[in-house]
Design a protein around this nucleic acid. Structure first.
Lengths: 192, 192
DNA sequence: CTTTCGAATTGACATAGATCAATAACATTG
DNA sequence: CAATGTTATTGATCTATGTCAATTCGAAAG
């Protein structure tokens, strides 16, 4: 059942009672997105945050110069959304697109605020999640500063295991901030 | 009085009662650090997070290749520390060094856990702070992907106002992930 | 007002990665 | 299994930034 995977995720991060978990799952809704379809597009107001039950998605935006930049890949048991826009309740700047057929759960902004008040343990749950995301993101910055493409590609493959098979190379190149050509050359070197 | 600045900071982020604020400030301690002195060095276990009342500091680490990387500058009303190590309660990897004579407040790990239990509003306070830090950090990643040194330098100067006068250029170059020589050339271009 | 020493600048050259263009490998669809 | 479109690779250049070495600037100390 779909709620099981989010329940497990919550349990693995905080101590919650059955009724807390039930309160949380009771406000969730389900959505399916086919490969190539969008969960979110720029300009939309961001009413939800999404939890991936099954599938794979990418979050990206287009900058002033028209270049696309992938911010995040999301696979099973990840939360995904336009965090910034959701938090500030302003229109989104992101595209979130399914790379595979995906099933997600989502929570509404107002529901979440209500849950924070009724069950503050969920403040902790999201505080912990965002702390981890913050740390992971910092690693990504540092990796860019410290290392060349080759090392970063290896790092990427180990930190998103098996994702090379689920995501096209040009998306990985984009995430790493290099051209597909360069990534291709780097991968060739690795084979030798 | 030193507690006033942290009290203001808390009030500007969450609705707290007087007694909540008092509970929080009652566990804080004060510390002064002279220019060039260290608040934290690698290998230390991270027992505290610091709030800057006055002054300016930098947080950096040395990578495997011996290169230094500045992660954060901290000025008045910023929290600073080795977030990662504090959260996981493992030894620090960072240096935190005062760029100016600085006055700080700090909170102990166990005190903070206790406060989270007694006054969950502080879960929210820190959840909000880390959310903002997360968003700011994401901007930094994106900026690296999107822009060349010149634009990023300008962005840096606007987002850390007046810091050019407080921090040496080689530290700014380091933060931006470029060489001092390159930053120097970029600044020369900007003058013309 | 000089001396000193770290910081900033400048010049000459090296290089990782970008760009552009062509081709090859793969996958999807009729 | 052909046909078509998408993704990956390869080659030939170009460019932003790095590296190394020399010089100048500027602030602190005598």
């Amino acid at each position: 059942m779909m709620h099981q995977s989010i329940a497990n995720h919550i349990h693995s991060h905080v101590n919650v009672t059955e009724s807390d978990t039930h309160l949380f799952t009771s406000v969730l809704n389900e959505i399916s997105v086919a490969k190539g379809q969008f969960l979110l597009k720029p300009g939309t107001s961001v009413k939800h945050e999404y939890f991936v039950v099954k599938g794979c998605l990418k979050a990206y935006y287009i900058d002033d110069k028209g270049n696309r930049h992938i911010i995040q890949f999301a696979v099973e048991n990840w939360w995904v959304g336009d965090f910034d826009a959701f938090y500030k309740q302003v229109p989104s700047k992101l595209y979130i697109e399914a790379i595979e057929d995906s099933q997600l759960l989502f929570i509404n902004y107002n529901s979440l605020q209500k849950i924070y008040s009724e069950a503050p343990i969920f403040e902790r749950y999201f505080r912990i999640l965002i702390t981890k995301a913050f740390i992971a993101q910092r690693k990504r910055i540092l990796s860019t500063l410290e290392k060349h493409t080759q090392e970063r590609y290896i790092e990427f493959c180990t930190s998103y295991p098996n994702i090379e098979d689920r995501v096209p190379n040009y998306d990985i190149a984009n995430y790493l901030g290099v051209t597909p050509e360069n990534l291709s050359r780097v991968r060739k070197q690795l084979k030798n």
